[in-house]
Amino acid sequence: MKTEPINRTSMWKFKLSAATMTLIPAAVGINYVAKALAEGLKLPVWLGSLGTFLASMLAGPVAGAISGFINNVIYGLTLSPISTVYAITSIGIGIAVGILHARGWFSSAKKVFVSAIIIAIVSAVISTPLNVIFWGGQTGIAWGDSLFAVMVANHLPVWLASFTDEFVLDILDKVCVAYLAFFIYRQLPQRMVRFFRDDK
């Protein structure tokens, strides 16, 4: 089975359908569970945007952006306050995935790799200023931060060091998540794909 690019009249749906309304909390739940699984297996990636990816692929960039936003707000207000500000990054990821998917960039394994790199760039570009404002440029992940320390010690600009720190982490994470989402999306029953895609 091949996933085909979706022909929508428009991928920009700002009025939430009842299907999208229940999809978003599910997507946030999937984000949470995927993150918990990755932590449990001590994977070097977060996987915490899997649900956002799927929401974008199923219902478009707006649904994905809202899923990402709510994910960080709820996470911030219940578990880890600073993660709230990274809601902006999650919105960016949701929009990027939605556009790429609508344009057919999730249709084959090769294209998914390109998509993953673009998404990682988007994510790192938005996260870097936040990392600088809140953490002086660090990400809080040991090996990324050691890279950061080495670069700063060699008098490279902070923003470059911080971007590199974030990007190396993001590229690994987003490649993993993109392939997981690609693979899972292809396993979804057609009735489900149709249900969430329907404009009503």
Binding site: A18, A26, L54, L188, F196
Partner: peptide, 12 residues
Amino acid sequence: VIKTLDQSMTRS
């Protein structure tokens, strides 16, 4: 994921 999305369909 399938189970969760299926539940959201029913819920919707």
